[in-house]
Amino acid sequence: MTKMHIKLTVNGKAEELLAEPRELLIHVLRERLNLTGAHIGCETSHCGACTVEMNGKSVKSCTVFAAQANGAEITTIEGLGSPDALHVLQRSFREHHGLQCGFCTPGMITRAHRLLQENPAPTEDEVRFGMAGNLCRCTGYQNIVKSILAAASEINAAQEAAE
């Protein structure tokens, strides 16, 4: 099949590649751009391990074709924080034991990041509802929820202090 010229902005960086239209965004990210943070847990849009941000939305990148993503702006876990300066959510997940095997974690944190953009001070129920597209087999969610709530408070406290 003919390949397409695809342009993406990933974590602020312009990327160009040739891909079959059917290639899934998760494969483009993981196998061509070597961004292996987002994982594949089900391939059927149920688990959220492949969650990335595309044009300001949390999406399951196993259910997006490369062709659909052409022209999109994408943020992956690799675009949040850096080894020297972890993102608040990354720190908070560690602090509150919000991960065990770590396989769901990139999707969880990327999704939580968007959730807090849209709802900076969520209740516990809102976090649970807003994270319901991401499955975790290890943690039982309790500490994930705790990590996100703590990160939200920290972000809000920092903002108040700055004002």
Binding site: S45, G48, T51, K57, S58, V59, K60, T63, V64, R111, L115, G130, M131, A132, G133
Partner: peptide, 9 residues
């Protein structure tokens, strides 16, 4: 309907 990610798309 579905979950947050699915509802965005």
């Amino acid at each position: 309907i579905a979950d947050p990610q699915v509802r965005y798309m």
